[in-house]
Design a protein around this nucleic acid. Structure first.
Length: 562
DNA sequence: GCCGTTTTCGGCCCGACTGTTTTCAGTCG
């Protein structure tokens, strides 16, 4: 709607309202269709008012939008296709369409090859070349949906880039900002900020980095490059007395920044990436704490900056004290060589002790999950005997907990007999099959499973794998309600491709009074490091140490089930 | 079309870079 209205020359603020609303819904982490179905008031979503709430309900109910259909008839398809090309916005797309009469992308390509674009007023040879290059790239790129990158997959690149930037002697500090710094599970690009000695710019040094395949734009204070992997990286270089303001601005999220700027504006102040200004006088900018303080706000952790209530909480002094990796006393989801893990029991224990944990749960798969060599009751009990011997050897330095990742069967029963379940300290139970069940059935199945009177942790509650597999169709909010009622625990799984349940559901669970565990689902020793990713997701879900059972000493942890 | 610590009207973040122009519009983040 925004694009089409823009082409038609609609009021810019109205266009922006659509964009803001779309972004807000994108960042919501919940299904608006579901909310509509539950009869929730959609205008409670930031950026959604009465009219857009009505439109959202219409889309949810009918699968289409009458206004959109009408607009599409009014605006030639070619114009919107042209707008998808980087560098072409609504105005240029419209000009091209009107001047050359091109109706499709291939006609545009023909026009470009014939040199007709450069003769359109306002266009030139460079624009023509760029259009050709972009069209060619689209053709060769076909089928590869340019998905976002998983956070863990770009960490090394970010470290390399930062090390390169910091090597420049004019650089005082440099950090990644953007969604990477906010700990989002995926990132679309990498934003970085460098603080330099006064008057110095690191941009030339930055673009000399080895892994760069293309410099998209480059000025004295910022550059955009594309790495060979296709990852785009933006660097912003500022004087060190603007470090805080620049880091704040480029960390975003855009919705968070926008909210703060509007707030400042109402207070008669101006915020930009150089600082906070009272008229011409700069009143803050060197640190993020200064910037926020100038606006009457405490420091807000990057993971919270999504305009999900953190600004209001900051104003009211209600910001959560987020859980840290240092708070974690144990890991409640690991696998050994008994099933599909690569660690022996002893190695699991050693890994846990190396990380200073007080306890660790061994949660191998159960019999129904054949592909992992899942354990039948006899093997489970044999493993428990082995755990008893190991605990004796460890003499209290670590407690290895008896557990399993018990399969939730099709009907919601658990994959081990009650007698075996009773031997366990905690029971992780998870869905590994029948992903395609109808929503109602899937939801009832999971709720039945966690209703079993055991100390149950629901493992990876939605089954999604980022960029690989969609979540199964489950009413996770109903599961959260059930967990709250039953005193069951939901897991935040730290596997970088799972991170399941996600930040939004974790926050929802917390607000419903549900406790969570943050665990690694480690199959090998190095995967103990996944705790970092799990904690990051938990922090994005506003979780504090007291919300996470594995920050508790052993006995208290065991007592935290309903 | 949204929104409110100047609240139901009258505003709407702010700056960098590019390509084209010869002082700036368009695009992007």
């Amino acid at each position: 709607m925004a694009g089409l209205r823009e082409v038609q020359g609609a009021n810019k603020c109205r266009v922006r309202a659509y964009r803001n609303a779309a972004r807000s819904i994108d960042n919501l982490g919940r299904s608006v269709a579901e909310m509509a179905e539950r009869g929730e008031d959609l205008s409670a979503i930031p950026g959604i008012g009465k009219e857009l709430a009505r439109k959202a309900v219409e889309i949810s109910a009918t699968g289409s939008l009458a206004d959109l259909t009408r607009l599409r008839r009014q605006v030639p398809r070619a114009v919107t296709e042209l707008m998808d090309l980087p560098g072409l916005g609504p105005n240029k797309a419209r000009q091209l369409h009107e001047a050359l009469g091109v109706a499709t992308r291939s006609e545009l390509a023909e026009a470009a090859q014939a040199g007709r674009i450069r003769r359109v007023p306002g266009f030139g040879p460079k624009t023509e070349e760029r259009i050709l290059a972009e069209l060619a790239a689209r053709r060769s790129d076909k089928g590869s949906n340019r998905s976002r990158f998983r956070h863990a997959d770009v960490e090394q690149v970010v470290e390399g880039l930062l090390a390169h930037v910091r090597r420049d002697r004019g650089v005082v500090r440099a950090e990644a900002a953007g969604s990477f710094r906010r700990g989002k599970e995926t990132v679309g690009d990498i934003d970085m900020v460098a603080a330099c000695r006064p008057g110095y710019s690191v941009i030339d040094h930055f673009v000399s980095f080895g892994g760069i395949s293309r410099v998209v734009s480059k000025g004295p204070t910022r550059a955009t490059v594309v790495m060979r992997s296709g990852l785009q990286v933006d660097l912003r270089s500022v004087d060190k007395d603007s470090w805080g303001a620049a880091l704040h601005y480029f960390t975003g999220s855009r919705a968070h920044t926008l909210k703060i700027r509007l707030m400042a504006q109402r207070a008669g102040l101006k915020v930009n990436e150089y600082g906070v200004y009272d008229g011409d006088r700069k009143i803050a900018g060197e640190t993020e704490e200064d910037v926020n303080a100038a606006l009457g706000l405490p420091y807000i952790e990057p993971e919270l900056r999504e305009d999900r209530g953190e600004v209001e909480a900051g104003l009211d002094g209600r910001l959560p004290e987020l859980v840290t990796e240092g708070d974690i006393r144990g890991n409640l989801h690991t696998h050994t060589v008994a099933t599909d893990g690569r660690m022996t029991l002893r190695q699991v224990a050693d890994g846990a002790m190396a990380r200073g944990y007080e306890y660790i749960a061994v949660t191998d798969h159960t019999q129904s999950l054949r592909i992992t060599n899942g354990q039948d009751p006899a093997r489970v009990l044999a493993q428990f005997a082995e755990i008893d011997r190991l605990n004796d050897e460890l003499e209290g330095r670590l407690r290895v907990l008896k557990s399993a990742e018990v399969d939730i069967l099709l009907d919601g029963s658990l994959d081990l007999p009650d007698g075996v379940l009773r031997e366990m300290d905690v029971v992780v139970c998870s869905v590994h099959s029948h992903f395609k069940l109808p929503r109602k059935h899937q939801t009832e199945r999971i709720i039945r499973a966690i209703s079993k009177p055991c100390p149950i942790i629901l493992g990876h509650g939605t089954g999604r794998k980022i960029n690989v597999r969609e979540p199964y169709d489950v009413d996770i909010e109903a599961v959260i309600d059930a967990a709250a009622r039953l005193g069951r625990v939901l897991e935040v799984n730290g596997q970088p491709e799972r991170l399941d349940i996600n930040d939004v559901y974790a926050k929802m669970a917390k607000e419903a009074g549900v406790k969570l565990s943050v665990s690694t689902d480690a199959h090998r020793l190095s995967e103990f490091d996944f705790m970092r990713h799990g904690v990051m997701q938990a922090r994005r879900g506003w979780l504090e140490a007291r919300d996470v059972i594995n920050t508790l000493p052993l006995e208290e942890m065991l007592a935290s089930f309903g």
